[in-house]
């Protein structure tokens, strides 16, 4: 470095110091949000919501999940045969399960804008039980059972009719 440049260094440095002081009077960028809460964007990928009455039990979401955190819980009825259950502490919130869900027009598994997920205390036992359960599962099961009963009734009636017809046919 030349001597001339070296002599200019303190002056240049002082200039920069004065310029940085400008920032003291600029508006602050911090948003104090802790007390207010923040509204997230429309399709923020947060906590799951699983609607059991829409689910058809195809287990596409479980297959699409990259970390295998979706478990298909058997319901004991035929339709849906099983519903998804998401283990919250393993989930990476990629939203691929939502993409894979085939139900139309509304998806049975969806990621909502609920981003505050606090588990306290954060021990392994607590985290292990931190699961997103399907909503309205019992109602859906009851509904499905009723449907099954109705279908069975209809089937029985149809069978009886058939048998009666058969008998009639035999009698003839």
């Amino acid at each position: 470095m030349e001597i001339k440049e070296a002599l200019m260094v303190p002056f240049e440095a002082t200039k920069k110091v004065i310029r940085v002081t400008k920032a003291l009077f600029a508006p602050k960028a911090t948003e104090v949000w802790w007390d207010k809460g923040v509204k997230r964007e429309l399709h923020y990928r947060g906590k799951h919501i699983i609607k059991a009455e829409l689910c058809i039990g195809c287990s596409m979401c479980a297959r699409a999940c990259p970390v295998n955190c979706i478990e298909m819980v058997p319901t004991g009825v035929k339709k849906p045969r099983a519903v998804p259950k998401v283990r919250g502490n393993e989930c990476i919130f990629c939203g691929l399960c939502e993409d894979a869900c085939p139900t139309k027009p509304e998806k049975a598994i969806k990621l909502t804008d609920n981003y505050s997920m606090i588990v306290e205390p954060g021990t392994w036992d607590n985290l292990y039980q931190f699961v997103f359960e399907p909503e309205g599962l019992e109602e859906a099961i009851e509904k499905a059972k009723k449907m099954e009963e109705m279908i069975e009734k209809k089937k029985r009636e149809a069978l009886k009719k058939k048998q009666l017809e058969d008998k009639k046919g035999e009698e003839k």
Binding site: A23, K28, T30, V32
Partner: peptide, 13 residues
């Protein structure tokens, strides 16, 4: 507080 001002932050709050 002053460093935070230069950084355009709020600082202790």
């Amino acid at each position: 507080k002053i460093l935070a001002d230069v950084h355009l932050r709020t600082g202790p709050y």
